[in-house]
């Protein structure tokens, strides 16, 4: 009986915990779907240091087969280790060709959900910026974490960001 009470208390405590802090990316576009934008790839990772020491990025592709396929909402939940900031790269494709990309870096909230909207803009289609820049509203602006994936030492290869990533 006493043991059952302990288990019950533990279960109640677990049940009262809210969802983990998260960043929700809402992807929008002014491009026509699927004529001008028919696929999106999202690459996501989180860092355990300010300078950037990330888990092995996880990815997901989305086919945009309907005119109202966007906005798309991506919820990235904070874990126990990579708790400094979250990073995502969103790449837009048309006919298998990458036409634009955006990167966002955002600190985790202490609790609750932080909403981040990313617009995949017509003004940035096929716009070439330098390696340390990205196109936002048609202009090249500095990336917050340039070359994050170019340095293998900044990626914890043995620690994938998603359990289902090999």
């Amino acid at each position: 009986m006493r043991r059952a009470a302990v288990i019950l208390a533990a279960l109640l405590a677990a049940g009262c915990d809210g969802p983990p802090p998260a960043v929700r990316l809402t992807l929008e576009t002014d491009l026509a779907m699927p004529a001008e934008l028919d696929e999106i790839h999202v690459l996501a990772a989180a860092s355990r240091t300010e300078a950037g020491q990330i888990c092995g990025p996880t990815s997901r592709g989305f086919r945009l087969s309907a005119t109202d396929a966007l906005p798309l909402r991506l919820v990235i939940e904070r874990g126990e280790t990579y708790t400094v900031w979250v990073w995502a790269r969103i790449e837009g494709f048309a006919g298998g060709r990458r036409i634009l990309a955006r990167e966002v870096v955002h600190a985790w909230p202490d609790e609750g959900v932080t909403e981040v909207t990313v617009r995949l803009e017509r003004a940035c289609v096929d716009r070439t910026c330098g390696a340390a820049d990205q196109c936002i509203e048609g202009s090249c602006r500095p990336l917050q974490m340039p070359g994050l994936l170019d340095d293998a030492e900044r990626i914890d290869a043995d620690r994938p960001c998603s359990g289902d990533t090999p």
Partner: peptide, 11 residues
């Protein structure tokens, strides 16, 4: 949980 089209939990 918060609604979303893709949910991923970081380690």
């Amino acid at each position: 949980p918060v609604a979303g089209d893709w949910r991923v939990r970081m380690p």
